[in-house]
Simulated scan of single mutants.
Amino acid sequence: MSTSLATPSSILIVDDMEENLIAFEAVLGPLHQHLVRARSGEQALKAMLRQEFAVVLLDVRMPGMDGLETAANIKRLDQTKHVPIILVTGTEGGADYAYRGYAIGAADFIAKPVDPWVLRTKVNVFLELHRKNRELAMRTTGADGDRLAEITERLTEIVLLLRDRPDADTGELVDRITEVERAVGALLPGGTGTG
């Protein structure tokens, strides 16, 4: 695993009450990720524009911009719309908040009092998804990105050959397709590119 994949992901914890922030940090601490606090919806939006987060843990009931409004704003921004949000609320109004939260685009919902094991498990799912997305992004940049561009160019040549010459030499097509298969095989995990 490369060092950039081994670096901790960031989790944004949004709650207006200090004791809740402390409790969430204690529960999520064993995941060994970078925990960022926000005490309001406004602070959460500013934090989201400053850095990338794997997941947001967002209290629904806050003064000013509440959690639902904050979630809606997060989902409106191109930069942050794909970040999963776990809404957290007390038991009162839970079903209504859950429905409204899911309608906005929240990925999950958890009620207080929070079961530490359940919260860590839910957050860990989103952390793993974030790691996989970073890994995939890294594979399609740099040398692999150059290889993908080369493969795309070869596929374009094959398409042009087929389109421009319906009576194209079958042997030439087979050779070009074999080259593309090898190049794709080299990009796949554990691929050797030997066809």
Rank of each mutant, 00 (worst) to 15 (best):
S2I: 08
T3V: 15
S4Q: 12
L5M: 07
A6E: 14
P8D: 05
S9V: 04
V14R: 01
M17H: 11
I22P: 02
E25H: 11
A26R: 15
L31R: 05
H32P: 00
Q33R: 07
V36W: 02
V36A: 01
A38Y: 05
G41C: 03
L45R: 01
K46R: 12
A47C: 10
M48N: 01
R50G: 03
E52R: 15
F53V: 05
V56F: 00
L58M: 15
V60M: 03
R61S: 08
G64R: 02
G64C: 08
G64D: 06
L68F: 07
L68W: 05
L68M: 06
E69H: 08
T70M: 02
A72V: 10
A72W: 04
K75D: 06
K75V: 12
Q79T: 12
Q79K: 12
T80A: 02
V83W: 01
V83Y: 03
I85G: 00
L87S: 00
T89Y: 00
T89A: 05
G90T: 11
A95H: 09
D96Q: 12
A98R: 13
G101W: 02
A103C: 07
I104H: 00
D108P: 06
D108G: 02
D108Y: 08
I110C: 00
A111Y: 04
K112P: 04
D115H: 09
P116H: 07
T121I: 03
V125T: 12
V125H: 06
V125R: 06
E128R: 15
L129T: 15
H130A: 14
R131L: 10
R131G: 07
K132C: 15
R134G: 05
A137E: 14
M138S: 09
A143K: 12
D144H: 10
G145L: 09
D146G: 11
D146Q: 13
L148D: 04
A149M: 09
L155P: 06
V159R: 15
D164W: 06
A168S: 13
T170G: 06
E172Y: 13
E172V: 15
V174A: 10
R176M: 11
T178C: 03
E181V: 08
L187C: 11
P189N: 00
G193C: 07
T194P: 01
T194H: 13
